[in-house]
Write a protein that binds this DNA or RNA. Structure first.
Lengths: 104, 104
DNA sequence: AATCCATTTCGCAAATTTCCGAAATATATT
DNA sequence: AATATATTTCGGAAATTTGCGAAATGGATT
């Protein structure tokens, strides 16, 4: 009796999920920042200095990206060193590129 | 005295804007649908039949995609034939791929 | 002019997102 | 044990998004 029809493919849901993670300029900024400082330690506080938002708000954007799997934080108290999660980043990239390669 | 500092690059804002347009599975579905039926006429009603949402809700998702420039509607009363806006689609594709090509 | 039809717009409710400052956390240092 | 530090979590406000059904739209048909 389970009437759960599926309306969206896994791929469609994945595109939407990754896109949502990238749907705020602060989060795009964070990913850019991490990608451009791959060799350095990236702390929340460093990014906060370049952004017009409260630290607690930045923290929530970081959590959002973590939830999407795109970044990870290595705890090193009282700091947290953030970096891109390469494996999931590659998956997001593949997912989005495949979507944009629709034969239109 | 205009204290408007700019915190995000145009590119970052563009990524966020396009990503937002793709951040809901219904909208991803619509773009897939249009891309896979490029030769046919695509009416709102046809898509509505494959989706678990009210027609008015679908209409609002279509408006969202139109606002982002990704689709356009050719009015042919009482129908509206939808299709992907190729020029803006290509721009979105380029924007997103460039973003994902960050040297990480 | 009255009716039909696909679609959108409107009015509104519910859910989610974004944001902040204050408080909590967890460790290192004094 | 008290203090200092970077960050997160909490509580709550404001804004935005998602959704629906009813009404409006605009041209075609009777």
């Amino acid at each position: 009796m389970s009437e759960k029809e599926k309306y969206y493919t896994d791929s469609q849901e994945k595109v939407a999920r990754f896109a949502k993670a990238l749907s705020h300029p602060v989060r795009v900024f964070i990913l850019d920042y991490l990608a451009n400082n791959i060799d350095k330690c990236c702390y929340s506080g460093d990014m906060a200095e370049e952004l017009p938002i409260a630290r607690s708000t930045l923290s929530e954007h970081l959590a959002e990206l973590k939830k999407a799997g795109l970044i990870q934080g290595e705890i090193n108290p009282p700091y947290i060193k953030y970096c891109i999660n390469r494996e999931n980043w590659e998956e997001a990239k593949k997912t989005m590129i495949q979507f944009f390669n629709l034969k239109i």
